[in-house]
Amino acid sequence: MRHEFFIHGVRVPITANEVSPVIWEALTSGRYEAKEARLVRRLVREGDCVLELGAGIGVITSVIASTPHVKVWSYDANPYTVSLAERVAKANNLDNVTFSHGLVTAGSSGNHLFYIRSDFWMSSLIAEQGPYVEVIETPSLDVDTIISKRDINVLVMDIEGAERQLLGSARLDGVDRVFLELHDHLYGLAGIRDIFHAMLLRNFSYDPRNSSGACIVFSRDLGAIRTYNPDDDL
């Protein structure tokens, strides 16, 4: 029988045998992507067109899609989690999300080996990251083509290290906010430096008010001075 519960205001209809014990514990304890959910709520605004890379089981997708008049296009390289994400969105009566199985990169399309792990949030393009249960070949799509076709203005990603390559090569024309999780255990501080440098070249600035630890936001820097809010220090 399917267990159904709420996390971060999202109805999640899954059973313990559909995810690993580690992920099940994070879900039932409320720890699952708690920081991401809080920050994404602050990031997304009414009317945004959002491209999400790394749908997982659709919890963060559903948080994004709950903002009024938002459209979301969400991709994941793991076909199994895409099916779970679709179920979660349906359970929350969200009809403004389009899920797709696929790998989104910057540059020409091609085929890539994707390593699926029992803790799905560890699945990645990196074989050396740890033991895996399956390897699939997945075609890639160009991120800038999707951004242009869908009029994307917000990019949200948790792609287990692949953000370094993507942000180093993508143009991101039309995007004004980027949310991502850094993975220094995969590319070190040098990789973080590369990401910040690439975003600086595209006129993005680190947004301290909407970032926390490894979960960070870059915003287009238009030079405006912000009003001081003491609550931002809490």
Rank of each mutant, 00 (worst) to 15 (best):
S29E: 10
P131F: 01
P208Q: 05
D176A: 02
V72S: 10
I7G: 03
A127I: 01
T227S: 12
S211A: 06
N111L: 13
R117Y: 00
E46V: 04
G107Y: 07
Q165C: 00
H101A: 06
A77W: 01
S66E: 03
E18W: 03
V97K: 07
F5K: 11
S219G: 08
I116A: 07
P230F: 02
V63H: 04
V88H: 00
D233E: 14
A77S: 14
T67W: 04
I23D: 06
A106R: 12
R220Q: 14
S169M: 13
F218W: 07
V72H: 11
H185P: 01
D119V: 13
G56W: 01
L43G: 03
Y228W: 11
V40N: 05
R164T: 14
L234K: 15
I192S: 09
S212W: 02
S100R: 14
M1N: 11
G223Y: 12
R117I: 08
S169A: 14
V143P: 02
L113S: 15
F179E: 08
F114M: 09
G110Q: 14
C49N: 14
S205L: 12
G107H: 11
D158M: 00
L27Q: 03
L186T: 09
I159C: 08
W121K: 10
Y187K: 08
V135I: 15
R177C: 06
P21Q: 06
L113K: 15
N153H: 03
A162G: 11
T81A: 05
V40K: 00
H185I: 10
I159Q: 06
S62A: 12
D76V: 09
S66V: 00
E181H: 00
Y75K: 02
E36M: 06
I14G: 03
G58N: 04
L172A: 00
D95Y: 10
I14R: 01
I216H: 04
P230Q: 04
P21W: 00
I159D: 07
E36T: 03
A127E: 15
E4N: 05
E33G: 10
L166N: 03
A89P: 11
T61C: 11
H8P: 09
S20Y: 08
G30R: 03
T145Q: 12
S148Q: 15
G107V: 12
G223Q: 04
D221I: 06
V143Q: 05
A77Y: 07
E46W: 06
A16D: 13
S62N: 09
S148G: 13
I7L: 12
Y115H: 09
G58E: 09
P208N: 01
A91M: 01
F5W: 09
G102T: 10
A55D: 10
S74W: 09
S20R: 02
S109Y: 05
A37K: 02
D48F: 00
R38I: 07
S83K: 14
V175R: 01
V50G: 10
G223K: 09
T81K: 01
V44Q: 02
H8V: 06
L200Q: 12
L172K: 01
F204C: 05
E18S: 04
L27Y: 04
A170K: 08
D151C: 14
S140R: 11
P131A: 05
K90A: 13
V72Y: 09
V40F: 03
Y187H: 15
I14D: 01
K35R: 13
R117G: 03
S212E: 15
N78I: 06
D48V: 03
